[in-house]
Design a binder for these strands. Structure first.
Lengths: 370, 370
DNA sequence: CAGACCAATGTAACCGCATTCATTTCCGGC
DNA sequence: GCCGGAAATGAATGCGGTTACATTGGTCTG
C-alpha cells in the first residue's frame, strides 16, 4: 500500500503516454492490439485501479446514482465489542448469551422492509445500467446536509417523498436531476414515480362490496398527513359513490398505521358492534384488527370482512390470511432508476411521471366461500 | 441547470479568492465572520454544492465506504410501464390487477433479509462517522468488475465472505483497506468481522442435551462448503464430546439450507423414527422440519425437540416458535464499519479481528415444561 | 515516387477543489 | 502615528484522470 499506482505509473511501465493508457481503458478499439496488451499487462502487474474521483472530475459525471431515504428508526447505542489482532485469539469475553423469549416480538419495521425492497429494485436496475448506487439515510434535521452531501457525488438523486424539505429539493434539482419516489405528483419540475393507490383501493372496495352484498363497510384511515393514505381514501370514496352508496353512511375510524392502533380499534369494534366489513388503509392496522378479532372469537370473514393495503409479508401469513393490495415495491426502485436514466439521457425532456400498477390480492380474510 | 456553479463562481460573487471559499466550507473559523457571511450568502444565492469528485481528488480521500455483497437472486426481466409527462395524466393502461392467492408463498429470501440487516447496521455506523455508503452487488462473473469499480471510488471496502475471489481481493487490498465480513479468519492481512458460530452452537447443544436428558440428538447439516456451517458443526462436536457422548452415535443428515430440504428430511424422520432432538444448522431447514412434523401430527417439543440457527424473523413466528441462535446481523454491519474506521485511522496497525457474540434464543420448540 | 489520408500515439489543457506559502490587513503597545 | 506580529486572504500548484488537438508513421493513389 506504499504508493497507489496512477496512470502515470502505468504509462511509464508500458512505455506509452498516459493518453494511451486512458484509451486502453475507455476506448480499447482505438489502440493497436500490441500496445493494448502491453498496457493491460502493466495494469495487471501494478494492480492499477483508476481513481473514481479523478475520472469523475474529468468526465463531469460520476456514474453514481443516489438513493435517499428518511431515517430508519434510530437504533440504540452501539453494542461494544473487543477488537483483537490475529495473534491473540480473543478468547476473553462473552461469546454468547442466552435469552428466554416468552412472547413473539411485535413486528415493527414495516416501513423498513418497504425500503429494503425498494433499495433492492434500485440496486438491480442501477447495475444493469452500469451505475453504482449510493445510499443515504436521513436522520432528523441534518437530513438536509446528508442530502446535499450526496448531491455533490452523484449524477442523479432518487428521493423518497417527504424525506427532504421542498426548498432543499429545489436547490438540489438545480444541480442534478431528482426523481421523487412514491409521492404525489406536485407542480414541481421533478420526475415522479408513484403507484396506483386510488385505483387499487377502488378495485378492492368493489370486491368488498361484492362480498358483503353491497352493505356499507367501515373505513380505517391512517394519519391525516399521509399522502398515500389520502389517495387510498379517494379511491375508496369513488368506489362508494359509484356503487350508489352514501359516503356519509360510512363509519370512518382513524389510526396511526401501527398494529397496536389496529388492535385497539378492533377491540372497540368488538364492543360497539361489528360492521359488515372493515377496510384498513394499511396492512399493519388490519393485522392488529385481526389480532383483536381472533382474541374475541370473531370469525373473519364470516362475521366481518377485513382488508389491508401494502402487501407486506406478514399479511400473507396471518390467520386468516389478509386480503390486501400489493405495492410493487421492488418495481418502484427499479422504475425510479429507469426514469433517472432517461432523464440523464435527455436532460431537457419535460417532467416525466410513472404510475405503477398495484395488485389486488384476494385472500381468506375477504373471500366468503359457498 | 444551465451551468453548475463552482468555487470560482462563488468566489467571484463574494469578491474573494477561491481559497477563501474553500476555507469557509472546511474550516469556517479560519475566516473573519464578515467575509464568511458574504461567502455563505453567495453560496446560497448560487445554490452551490461542492463537487465530490473534485474534493475527493484534492483530498485524496472520498469519504465513501463501500459494501459489496454477493448477488441477490437474479430477478426476472423488468416489468414494463409507461412514462407520461405531467400534461397527459397517463390514464391509459392497467392501473391494477386482481389475483386470487390460494396458498401462502414459499419464503425464499432469508439470505436477502440477512443482507438487508447488515446493510442497515453499516449505513447507520457509516453515517455516525461521517461517511457515505456505496453498495454494490455482484452478479456472477462480472462480480469482480463491480468490486474493482467500487474500489476506485471508496476509501475502504467491506466485502461479504466469499463474494470476491481471493486473488482479486488481494489486489484490491493493495489499494484500499478491506474488511471481510462473516468469513473465517484466514491467513490474509485483511481485517475480519466474524460471529461466534461455534460457541453459540455449543451452548445451544448443551441446552438441548439438558432438555432431552442427555440423549443423543440428530444433526442436520448444511452444504459441505459453507464456512458458517463448518463452524457450527465444530461447536456441536465440542459440546457432544464435553458431555461425554460419542460423536459416532450422532445421526447426521445433510440438506442445502432450504426450507424444502428441511421438509423432506422431516418427512423421512417421521417415517424412519424420530430422534429425541433434531438440531438444524440453520433456521430455514428447521422450519421445513416443523412443517413436516406438523403435517404428520408430531408434537414439538414433546415428541422431539427442534432447533435452528440464524434468528430469522420467520423463526419467531412459527408454530411452535423455533428455538434458535440469533446472529447479530445489524451489529455485523456496524462492526464492519467501525473496524474500517479504525483501519483508516491507523493504516499500519496489525490486522484486526472482531468476533461478535451470538444470542441463544430459547423458544417453544425446545423447552419442555413441567 | 510524391502527396494525401488515415490510424496510432503524444502533448497539453482542463475538470473543481484543497492547501502551502507568500502577501496583505488588522491590532495592540509605545 | 508607527512598528511588529498575528490573523486573514490571495496566488499558485497538485490531485489523477479525459480529451481536443498536434504529430508521427504508414499505406494508398495517381
Amino acid at each position: 500500500m506504499s504508493k497507489v499506482p496512477t496512470v502515470y505509473d502505468v504509462a511509464e511501465r508500458a512505455g506509452v503516454s498516459i493518453a494511451t493508457v486512458s484509451r486502453v481503458l475507455r476506448t480499447p478499439d482505438a489502440v493497436r492490439p500490441v500496445t493494448r496488451e502491453r498496457v493491460l499487462g502493466a495494469v495487471t502487474e501494478l494492480g492499477y485501479v483508476p481513481s473514481g474521483s479523478a475520472r469523475g472530475l474529468a468526465e463531469r459525471r460520476t456514474g453514481v446514482l443516489g438513493l435517499y431515504f428518511p431515517g430508519f428508526d434510530a437504533l440504540d447505542e452501539a453494542a461494544e465489542f473487543t477488537v483483537f489482532t490475529d495473534d491473540d485469539d480473543g478468547a476473553a469475553g462473552d461469546e454468547f448469551s442466552i435469552v428466554h423469549e416468552a412472547a413473539p416480538p411485535e413486528d415493527a419495521g414495516a416501513a423498513t422492509l418497504f425500503l429494503d425492497e425498494v433499495l433492492r429494485g434500485a440496486e438491480l436496475e442501477a447495475w444493469r445500467r452500469g451505475f453504482v448506487l449510493m445510499v443515504g439515510v436521513g436522520r432528523g434535521d441534518p437530513a438536509t446536509s446528508v442530502a446535499r452531501d450526496m448531491a455533490g457525488r452523484v449524477d442523479g438523486l432518487v428521493v423518497l417523498a417527504n424525506s427532504v424539505p421542498d426548498d432543499v429539493l429545489e436547490r438540489l434539482s438545480a444541480r442534478i436531476p431528482i426523481v421523487v419516489l412514491a409521492g404525489p405528483r406536485r407542480g414541481d419540475s421533478n420526475d415522479h414515480v408513484t403507484v396506483s393507490n386510488a385505483q387499487g383501493m377502488a378495485a378492492l372496495t368493489r370486491h368488498v362490496l361484492e362480498q358483503t352484498g353491497g352493505r356499507v363497510p367501515s373505513y380505517l384511515a391512517g394519519p391525516v398527513d399521509s399522502p398515500d393514505g389520502a389517495q387510498r381514501w379517494q379511491g375508496f370514496q369513488r368506489a362508494i359513490a359509484e356503487a350508489g352508496l352514501d359516503l356519509a353512511d360510512v363509519p370512518v375510524l382513524r389510526g396511526d398505521f401501527s398494529r397496536a392502533a389496529g388492535r385497539r380499534i378492533g377491540d372497540e369494534l368488538v364492543r360497539s358492534g361489528l360492521p359488515p366489513a372493515l377496510m384498513s388503509s394499511n396492512d399493519q392496522m388490519a393485522l392488529g384488527v385481526l389480532d383483536a378479532f381472533a382474541a374475541a372469537g370473531v370469525r373473519v370473514p364470516q362475521d366481518v370482512v377485513v382488508t389491508g393495503f401494502d402487501g407486506i409479508d406478514a399479511a400473507a401469513r396471518s390467520h386468516p390470511r389478509l386480503t390486501t393490495v400489493r405495492q410493487p415495491m421492488t418495481e418502484l426502485g427499479r422504475a425510479a432508476i429507469e426514469v433517472m436514466a432517461r432523464r440523464l439521457d435527455e436532460p431537457d425532456a419535460p417532467p416525466m411521471s410513472v404510475r405503477l400498477p398495484v395488485e389486488v390480492v384476494l385472500r381468506d380474510s375477504s373471500v366468503r366461500r359457498g
